[in-house]
Computed example of a mutant assay.
Amino acid sequence: MRAERRKKKRRWVRVTGIILLLLFLGAGAYAYSVYHSLSKAMETMHDPTSRKVSDKRAQEVSLEAQEPFSVLMLGVDEREGDKGRSDTMIVLTVNPELETVKMLSIPRDTRVEIVGRGTEDKINHAYAFGNEEMAMATVENFLDIPIDYYIKVNMEGFQDIVDAVGGITVNNSFEFSNGGITFKEGQIGLTGEEALSYVQMRYDDPQGDFGRQQRQRQIIRGVIREGASLNSLTNFGDIFSALGENVRTNLTWDQMVDIQKNYRKSGRMIDQLAIQGEGGYIGRVWYLFVSDEERERVRQELKGHLAI
Rank of each mutant, 00 (worst) to 15 (best):
D292E: 15
K265C: 02
Q260V: 07
M269E: 13
I259Q: 02
F289G: 03
R284E: 14
Q276D: 15
G277Y: 07
R284N: 09
I282P: 01
G279M: 09
Y281N: 06
S266G: 05
I259Y: 00
S291C: 09
Y281S: 01
I270T: 11
V290F: 04
Y287I: 11
R264T: 10
V285K: 03
G283Y: 07
G267D: 07
Q276V: 14
Y263T: 11
Y281H: 03
G267M: 12
I259G: 04
Q260Y: 05
R268C: 03
A274M: 08
M269G: 00
V285A: 01
W286C: 00
R264H: 08
D292V: 13
G280E: 13
A274G: 11
I282N: 05
N262R: 02
V285Q: 05
Y287S: 05
Y287W: 03
G277W: 08
S266L: 05
Y287K: 04
G280T: 14
Y263Q: 05
R268N: 13
Q276L: 10
Q260K: 03
Y281L: 10
M269D: 12
L273I: 11
G283P: 06
D292G: 01
D292W: 01
Y287C: 06
Y263M: 06
G283V: 14
L288S: 04
V290C: 03
M269V: 13
G280V: 14
I270R: 05
Q260R: 04
L273M: 15
I259C: 04
Y287P: 07
Q272V: 12
Q276A: 09
R264P: 00
F289A: 03
F289Y: 08
G277M: 11
K261Q: 10
F289W: 03
Q260H: 06
V285R: 01
L273E: 14
L288E: 15
G279H: 06
N262M: 02
G267P: 00
G277S: 10
V290N: 07
K261A: 08
Y287E: 09
I270A: 01
G267L: 14
A274R: 06
Q272F: 01
I259L: 03
G267Y: 13
Y281R: 02
R264L: 14
I282H: 01
R284I: 14
Y281W: 09
M269Q: 10
R264A: 11
G267S: 07
K265Y: 04
W286M: 02
M269L: 08
G267I: 13
Y287M: 04
R264M: 11
E278S: 10
G283T: 11
I282W: 01
G279Q: 08
K265R: 10
E278Y: 00
I275N: 08
E278T: 15
L288K: 05
R268G: 12
D292P: 02
Y281C: 01
K265I: 06
Y281Q: 04
V290I: 15
K261T: 15
K261D: 14
K261P: 11
S266Q: 05
Q276T: 15
G279L: 08
I275T: 10
K265N: 13
R284A: 07
A274S: 13
L273P: 15
V285G: 00
